[in-house]
Amino acid sequence: MTTGSEEETVAVITIVSGRHLHLRRQLEAFEHSTVRPDVHIVVAMDDADIDGIVADSADAGHPTRVVHVIDEAPGTLPLADARNTGARAAIDAGATLLVFLDVDCIPGPDLVQRYLRSCAATPELRLLYCGPVTYLRPEHEVFDPRELHHFLDPHSARPAPGPCQTQLSSEMTLFWSLSFAVCSTDWLEIGGFHTGYRGYGGEDTDFAMCAARNGFRIAWVGGAHAYHQHHPVSDPPVEHLEDILRNARLFHRRWDRWPMEGWLNAFARQDLICYDEAVADWRRTTVERSNG
Rank of each mutant, 00 (worst) to 15 (best):
T185E: 13
E203V: 03
A157L: 15
P74T: 12
M172Q: 07
T185F: 11
D92V: 08
P74N: 14
S170T: 13
D243R: 01
L148K: 01
E277V: 12
T195S: 09
S290K: 08
G292T: 10
A268Y: 02
S169R: 02
A89K: 04
H231A: 11
C274L: 14
W255S: 06
V67N: 02
G192M: 02
N265K: 13
N247A: 08
P237K: 06
R289D: 11
H22D: 09
H149E: 15
A280Q: 12
M209G: 07
T286P: 00
T2R: 15
Y115I: 05
Y115M: 02
S234I: 12
E261M: 15
R257N: 13
L168P: 05
E28C: 06
G75A: 14
G199P: 01
G61Y: 03
R158F: 11
D38P: 04
H68V: 06
S169G: 11
I50G: 04
Q165H: 12
D102M: 01
F143A: 10
V287L: 11
D256A: 13
E288N: 04
P159Q: 07
C164R: 15
V67E: 02
L98E: 00
D235V: 14
D186G: 11
A87Y: 01
S17L: 04
H149K: 13
Q26N: 06
L97N: 00
R83M: 10
A58F: 10
L79P: 02
F30S: 01
C105I: 13
R137C: 10
T76N: 10
E288A: 08
P145D: 06
S156A: 14
A278W: 00
V133I: 15
R19G: 01
S170M: 10
A208R: 01
P63K: 07
P37Y: 01
V279L: 04
R117K: 14
S57D: 07
R289F: 11
C105W: 01
P37T: 07
A248E: 06
R253W: 14
E141K: 12
Y197V: 00
E239W: 09
D276Q: 10
T34R: 14
T173I: 13
S170I: 08
S5H: 13
I273E: 01
F180S: 03
L174Y: 03
D186S: 14
S17R: 10
P107A: 05
V99S: 00
W282A: 03
L79H: 00
S169I: 08
A219M: 02
D92G: 09
I273W: 06
M209H: 10
T286M: 10
D256T: 12
H225D: 08
L127R: 08
V287Q: 12
Q270C: 07
H62A: 07
Q270V: 08
L168V: 11
R19Y: 12
H230P: 04
C119R: 01
R269I: 06
R83L: 08
E6C: 09
G196N: 02
R158G: 09
W263L: 05
G52E: 15
A93V: 05
L264A: 10
T166I: 11
C164W: 06
G162P: 01
L27P: 02
G201A: 11
D206Q: 12
D47A: 06
S177I: 00
A82L: 11
S169L: 12
E141A: 15
R213A: 15
E7I: 12
Q26F: 03
P237Q: 07
D186I: 00
M172T: 09
R65K: 08
T205S: 07
C130W: 05
